[in-house]
């Protein structure tokens, strides 16, 4: 490797231009809004001070306010349930599908490609489709359950406070499974067949091969998929907007949606920012785990 200054002296600064373009993009579109958001979370921002940069600093008041609200507890718990269940289901279904498509059968590649449909669709469209499926009076799911005799009465998936969060989780799992499956498929394909054959000759049955060969060799991919899954799930906004709007009575409200509500519906922008800063802290923690797991991947 050449010293960092040599390419500059060579008159070939192209590599630096590339670095600066990327950095510039990140500074303007990521770092600046991030810092601005953090600043706002310490200020009193409302409709009257929105246009001015010179706003009164209120210290930790915004944090105090959002953390002591009645709704806080239920929203934090909903967020945790949403993330844990979504990621767990996405991961297990995605992994199962990845293993399934790893078997060579006619059309396997084709069918796997079709699964991507869910992932490439805009969240609002997915939300629209699922609101038809989950609708209480004319929903497809209720029709199916009633026809099959699973239930006699209509289930109000979106308007029953005890069920609305799980309805969004179902839709979110559907959105996230293809991503999990594709990433894990790549990892599975990278494990050479002869390692499995060696294990088979060494006396390992199917389950044991999965536990002692597949799982350890997939550690890096699993770490990446879990951390990215947590991040994507914490970003999931469209489905809430399309399906439940966080309701009824915060029954399906989560922090990301709440932050938006505070900022753009109640215009308590400082408090909305405080919620998003709290989420950023969580995401940083998860991102650290992600970076660690990909570093492990390079070492292997």
């Amino acid at each position: 490797m050449s010293a960092p200054t040599s390419s500059f002296r060579d008159g070939r600064g192209f590599d630096r231009i590339l670095v600066w373009i990327t950095l510039g993009f990140l500074i303007v579109f990521s770092a600046f809004p991030l810092v601005y958001n953090v600043i706002m979370s310490f200020q009193n921002v409302d409709l009257f001070t929105l246009a001015s940069f010179d706003r009164p600093f209120v210290g930790l008041d915004n944090y105090d306010e959002v953390l002591t609200r009645n709704a806080t507890q239920i929203i934090v718990r909903n967020t945790a349930v949403f993330v844990v269940l979504s990621v767990a289901a996405q991961l297990s279904i995605g992994f199962a599908l990845a293993l399934f498509f790893q078997q060579r059968f006619p059309g396997a590649t084709w069918l796997r490609g079709l699964f991507l449909a869910g992932w490439i669709m805009p969240g609002l469209v997915v939300g629209g489709v699922w609101s038809f499926i989950l609708a209480g009076d004319f929903g497809v799911l209720n029709w199916l359950l009633q026809t099959l005799g699973v239930t006699d009465d209509k289930i109000f998936w979106l308007s029953d406070p005890s069920k609305s969060l799980y309805s969004v989780i179902i839709a979110n799992v559907w959105v996230g499974v293809p991503f999990n499956m594709i990433l894990l498929s790549v990892g599975l394909a990278a494990i050479p067949d002869d390692i499995y054959e060696a294990a088979e000759l060494d006396g390992a049955g199917r389950v044991w091969r999965f536990l002692t060969i597949t799982l350890p060799l997939m550690r890096a991919q699993l770490g990446a998929v879990i951390s990215l899954g947590i991040i994507f799930t914490l970003q999931q906004f469209d489905l809430f907007a399309a399906l439940t709007q966080g309701g009824p009575s915060n029954g399906s409200n989560v922090m990301q949606y709440w932050s938006w509500e505070l900022s753009f519906q109640d215009y308590r922008i400082g408090q909305g920012s405080a919620v998003s800063v709290l989420m950023i802290l969580v995401v940083i923690g998860v991102a650290a785990i992600y970076v660690r797991s990909t570093r492990h991947e390079h070492a292997a």
């Binding site: 002869d194 390692i195 054959e197 060696a198 294990a199 060799l217 292997a300």
Partner: peptide, 9 residues
């Protein structure tokens, strides 16, 4: 095996 097929982990 030709590739040795050692368990990398």
């Amino acid at each position: 095996f030709q590739s040795y097929a050692l368990y990398p982990h």
